[in-house]
Design a protein around this nucleic acid. Structure first.
Length: 515
RNA sequence: GCGCCCAUAGCUCAGUGGAUAGAGCGCUUCCUUGCGGAGGAAGAAGUCGUAGGUUCAAAUCCUACUGGGCGUACCA
């Protein structure tokens, strides 16, 4: 489908012979779309206006301010778009900009050494929704969790479960594992414990968050299948591995890294980076992803140059993108504190979900940009969850369902029998505003697929719900005296329901018919 | 020391080159005899951390500074 914005951009592009970016003016008196392209392309705005002012898409096209052209959409154009929504239903907003390219989004991937906290699970809602949006934009998307069940932290976990001198982690789950454990070798204990933690703690939490991963990739499997050795051999053949101080180094400085990195330590143990390059070889060579997006905590940013160099060395330059999520700080009685498992200062994701529900958690986290340092106050989150904006959005959906239920006796016009004459009535400003919000949906998909600013979705859902609540207040739908008006408005709220539900589904938030 | 991120309303956060800077919560006032009031309308509240610079135009880009977070391993 071609969205409204794209149609207008093309019209202008044909005139100025230059790419055009339309924007929504902050004030509606400046129209529905505006552009400063006339100034940028040094084209007389009058020329553009003259060619477009009679186009049926517009009610008027006017010159304004310092080089702006403002476009006011016609009622007809909006009604045509409304028909599009009613015809396409859940498919509305499905774009093809991804060209079916295979994309993997990897997120959370917290170490299997303990429960997910509100800090390390921050990537859950973010990654899940980003993948959903990319899918809607026409990519073939998969979601993955990489489990680091190899290496030193597994040994530390084993020692913790055994409660020996090398113990590092503690908590009820460690006590529990200690009770169940029968092994003695710390590393084996750690591997066993990691599997248990993934299954009994982490997967339980991601399930509660309604995240469905396509794949859980275990680091230990990369070792078992010799993927790590094969990847290192590949690098060795390319002359990118050298020995120094009894360790083996990857020549990452050749690819823009500030220094080289160890891949095999002097004790012959492989480092995290060795596994990580093998992981990406698996992603690109074996699974043939065209693009991989990793979402990880900001504390990992020091590892990026090494990994990027590795990905380039195995032949997949520029195919990996990394999004860093900034840290979550806990607000405890107004005081900022760093989350710390040792100090017992952390809030588990499970605890939060149990207190406020998955819908609230997802909305709350989605609203924040990935590079915002998030201040989190559990007490406040609980207190405010009853007033959480997510209910405002869900309430709009429930209200529509309620009206539609009451209207069941009305013979609804089938979308396919309609043309825009089905809405030939003169619509009120409130109704037109609602349609304008609806037509913004595909734009949200496109923009978010391009810049990954996922917080656009909750913010859009609020705008849309607000436009509907205003409409509800001012326009009675079930008007018994005016059958045409009633039908027109029923169609309008059906379209609203479609887009609201679509938006909520992308966010992984339920769209209740009753509340 | 060097590198990355951040600083916007009382609080939590959007806005990242355009027109009078927005939302939710909190605060003040009004709207229920009409499809769900978990709603609607109106209002108070901001030197966009500070100082320079670029630009017709800066919260947004550049530089310096201040304050905070993170990183800088043969840990992951």
């Amino acid at each position: 489908m071609i969205m409204l914005r794209e149609k207008i951009e093309k019209l202008i592009k044909d005139i100025v012979k230059k790419d055009v970016q339309l924007e929504h003016p902050t004030d509606s008196k400046f129209g529905d779309y505006s552009t400063n392209v006339a100034m940028k392309a040094k084209v007389d705005p009058e020329k553009i206006i003259k060619e477009l002012k009679d186009n049926p898409l517009f009610e008027k096209v006017v010159k304004a301010g310092p080089g702006f052209i403002n476009f006011f959409l016609s009622q007809k154009a909006l009604q045509e778009e409304l028909l599009e929504i009613l015809e396409q239903k859940d498919n509305y907003g499905q774009l093809e900009i991804g060209n079916n390219k295979k994309v993997q989004v990897e997120f959370i991937s917290a170490n299997p050494t303990g429960p997910l906290t509100v800090a390390n699970a921050r990537g859950g809602p973010f990654g899940d929704v980003l993948a959903n949006v990319l899918n809607k934009a026409g990519f073939k998307t998969e979601k993955a969790y990489y489990v680091n069940d190899a290496g030193m932290q597994i040994l530390a976990l084993g020692n913790s479960v055994l409660k020996n001198k090398e113990s590092k982690y503690q908590g009820e789950y460690i006590d529990q594992l200690n009770q169940e454990n029968k092994e003695k070798d710390p590393y084996k204990v750690g591997q066993w414990a990691a599997k248990k933690i993934i299954k009994d703690l982490i997967q339980k939490t991601t399930d509660k968050l309604k995240i469905k991963y396509n794949e859980w990739i275990f680091e230990s499997d990369l070792y078992k299948s010799n993927k790590v050795d094969k990847t290192l051999d590949f690098l060795r053949e390319k002359g990118l591995i050298f020995e120094k101080d009894k360790a083996e180094w990857f020549k990452s400085s050749k690819f823009g890294d500030e220094r080289d990195r160890v891949v095999i330590k002097s004790d012959k143990q492989k480092t995290y980076l060795a596994g990580d390059i093998a992981l990406h070889s698996y992603k690109f060579k074996d699974k043939k992803f065209d693009k991989v997006i990793n979402i990880c905590g900001a504390d990992h940013h020091g590892d990026i140059p090494g990994l990027m160099a590795g990905v380039e060395a195995i032949g997949y330059k520029d195919k990996l993108e990394i999004i860093l999520l900034q840290f979550v700080t806990i607000l405890d009685k107004g005081e900022k504190k760093k989350m710390s498992k040792r100090a017992g200062l952390y809030v588990t994701m499970d605890e939060l979900i149990d207190k406020v529900g998955s819908d609230v958690v997802r909305f709350f986290f989605l609203q924040k940009s990935h590079n915002t340092h998030l201040n989190f106050d559990l007490a406040l989150a609980q207190e405010q969850s009853n007033k959480n904006p997510v209910f405002y959005v869900q309430y709009a959906h429930a209200r529509i369902c309620s009206i539609l239920k009451k209207a069941e006796d009305v013979i609804l016009s089938k979308a396919k029998d309609l043309d825009s004459s089905g809405f030939a009535l003169r619509m009120t400003k409130t109704e037109l505003n609602l349609i304008k919000k609806l037509t913004k949906f595909p734009e949200i998909i496109e923009d978010t697929a391009n810049d990954y600013q996922v917080q656009r979705l909750p913010s859009y859902s609020l705008e849309l719900a607000n436009a509907f609540h205003k409409f509800y207040e001012q326009c009675r739908v079930l008007d018994e005296k005016n059958k045409e008006l009633k039908e027109s408005r029923i169609n309008l709220i059906q379209a609203t329901k479609i887009v609201l539900k679509n938006t909520l589904e992308l966010m992984g938030i339920s769209a209740p018919e009753k509340m």
